[in-house]
Simulated assay, not measured.
Amino acid sequence: MASGLIQPRQTSSGAWRNWIKQGLELVSRKWPAWITVMTACCLASGYANVAEPIAEYLTLAVGFNLAVTVDHEADWTGMASRFASLLRDAVIFAVQVGIFVFLVTIPLNMAITNSKAALGAAENNRTFTAELAKAQSQSSVSNPLARVYEKSGNHLIEWAMVLPVGLGFLYPLRSLGAGFIRALVYGQHGAALNRNSLLVIAGFSFASVSAAMALDLYPLIPLIQGFWMAVNYVMFRDIFLGISENRRVQARTAARFTRIGMISVK
């Protein structure tokens, strides 16, 4: 990538089906790691406060790294070693891009904060019934955790909205050595070449999070998030590296052809 040799390609019109299939295969493999890592990311994002942009991009980068690790390593020791070696790049990327996003969106954040303060003041002036106050006190334990998962779900919705403009590819392109501007340009080019498939993935991602929230299935958010981060890795690998299948699937295919060849020789 540093020499600019890697260029995005246009995949088939139905590539999104294979991306989902390969993503499911990655998440079903080593699923305890997915649940553990993505739950930790959800909790970090939910309690990040002003550092929320950093936590959001760290979740994206860590999810991508975990997909790379699961795809390339078969045992837990190898997974731990590879994942640890990739963590530094994820943290640096999250801090750099997160701070940039935070500074750019300061006016928006101030407006949102002021609006919330105004709404809070209005709520304090209202008279609540005893029944409502009792219901709120009874749910005071579960509400904070639900808000944490909801915030992580909102991050995934944001990812679904920016994916069709190529921002979902920013981290892997940066990790391969592309400068920030070049990574933006390459990411947008790859997204433009595969716009329809990316829009389908974004739509499904948005719908999955919305359904989980509507049904109060907040504990599923980490697993949903992990799945879509795995899909993001598969998409990048297909569009920029021309690799459409997971390594384990490729190995099975190669072994199958080897057996067929041996049978035909006999």
Rank of each mutant, 00 (worst) to 15 (best):
G23C: 13
L43H: 08
A74I: 03
V70I: 14
T77E: 14
V70G: 06
L86Y: 00
P32T: 13
A67Q: 13
P107Y: 01
F93T: 08
F83R: 00
T113F: 15
L86N: 08
V68M: 12
V37Q: 09
L108Q: 07
V95G: 02
K116A: 06
A61K: 00
R29H: 15
S115Y: 14
L66V: 01
T59H: 04
R82F: 08
K21Y: 15
S115T: 14
V27R: 13
S45C: 14
I112Y: 08
N125A: 05
I35G: 13
T129A: 09
F93V: 10
A122H: 10
L108N: 06
E131I: 12
T105F: 06
V62L: 12
N114M: 10
S81N: 10
A122E: 15
T39C: 08
G78L: 07
A61Y: 14
N49A: 15
A67P: 10
C41H: 06
G63D: 09
L103K: 05
F128C: 01
W76N: 01
A55R: 03
P32V: 05
F100E: 03
L103G: 07
Q22H: 07
M79G: 11
A117V: 11
L87R: 00
I35K: 05
V27A: 04
L108S: 14
I99S: 02
R82I: 13
A33L: 13
L86S: 00
L43N: 05
I99R: 01
C41D: 14
E52C: 10
I35D: 15
V91Y: 02
T36H: 02
L58P: 01
G46C: 02
F93K: 05
S115A: 09
T69D: 07
V95R: 04
L108M: 09
G120F: 12
A122S: 12
G78F: 04
L119H: 04
V37N: 00
V62T: 13
T105D: 11
N124K: 06
L43K: 07
W19R: 00
G98N: 02
G46K: 00
V101A: 11
A51P: 12
T113C: 10
I112H: 10
A44N: 05
L103Q: 04
G78V: 14
F102Y: 06
A40E: 13
G63Y: 01
L24T: 11
L58W: 02
